[in-house]
């Protein structure tokens, strides 16, 4: 099975940030491989180790995204594609999806794998958009993957249970980070990653119409989430405080 995994460089959501006049100020150096994408890479590696095949990754991003690609290669992916941007474009999910669909249109693959969302925006739209643009069968929010008779069997977390879905190849899947713990690259993997091929290309190489990439969904400003004030804290004799809070839920909070 040949996997192509779409990965994204995202700001480290645990890094400190400031909001000034509606703008988000973060340390641009603190970026990571999106955690959901790392799970997608991990699962592709596990399945190809078991059933044969190989894993390639594609990443749209600025020059700095080459570090993100190296990380995936150090985990074990065989090849990277870097679709270079200036880093100041205002792309939305649809822009990314169109670039990826155009890139993938002449590639050979059995399974396209995505993280189910990116950690910074949590939109979760790009995977489904690419599936539609390429007219592929797909499943989202996978918590487990298996390969059976050249088919991909997806365990998907749905609203009221886990759905077992069988997809013919080629197909697309988006992965939850619940399916595995992505491996930490070891020294051998890191050394090997430096010799692995990374093909660099630009958005214009792909022949995508730049006006079609114009974001229709634009973040106009940021603001802090109103902090939730801490309420009352009860310490002391367990039975007493348990009774007291139960009473307050009834008389004060009115939620019983």
């Amino acid at each position: 099975m040949k996997f192509i995994v779409s990965i994204k460089m995202v700001p480290d959501v645990y890094a400190p940030f400031q909001i000034k006049d509606g703008e988000l100020l973060m340390d641009g150096d603190r970026t990571v491989l999106n955690a959901y994408d790392a799970s997608a890479v991990e699962e592709a590696l596990v399945l190809t180790e078991k059933h044969g095949g190989d894993v390639e990754v594609v990443c749209i991003g600025s020059a700095k995204a080459s570090e993100t690609i190296r990380k995936a290669l150090a985990m074990g992916a065989a090849k990277g594609y870097h679709i270079q941007t200036n880093g100041d474009e205002t792309y939305d999910s649809s822009s990314y999806a169109q670039i990826l669909a155009s890139f993938l249109s002449d590639k050979e693959y059995d399974i396209l794998s995505f993280g189910k969302q990116s950690q910074d925006t949590d939109s979760g739209l790009t995977g489904g958009m690419v599936a539609q643009l390429l007219n592929l069968p797909y499943a989202t929010n996978a918590v487990g993957l298996e390969i059976e008779d050249n088919k991909l069997v997806v365990k998907r977390q749905g609203d009221s249970g886990q759905e077992m879905i069988e997809l013919p190849t080629p197909c697309l899947v988006t992965c939850s980070n619940d399916m595995n713990e992505p491996r930490i690259p070891n020294l051998k993997g890191i050394m090997a990653s430096k010799r692995k091929p990374v093909e660099s290309l630009s958005v214009s190489d792909l022949g995508v119409d730049a006006t079609a990439l114009e974001a229709v969904s634009k973040v106009t400003s940021y603001e802090p989430v109103p902090a939730r004030a801490a309420g009352k804290k009860f310490e002391g004799e367990p039975e007493e405080i348990a009774r007291e809070v139960a009473q307050l839920l009834d008389t004060e909070a009115n939620v019983l």
């Binding site: 939730r228 801490a230 309420g231 009352k232 804290k233 009860f234 310490e235 367990p238 039975e239 405080i241 348990a242 009774r243 809070v245 139960a246 009473q247 307050l248 839920l249 009834d250 909070a253 019983l256």
Partner: peptide, 28 residues
């Protein structure tokens, strides 16, 4: 969690919950 809780009970759940449950039953 106490930074966002309206009502924070500091204590062992095994000691808190039985009384908490009984009291809510009474109120209900």
């Amino acid at each position: 969690i106490f930074e966002i809780a309206d009502y924070g009970i500091v204590g062992d759940l095994y000691k808190i919950l039985p009384t908490f449950i009984e009291e809510i039953k009474k109120i209900k």
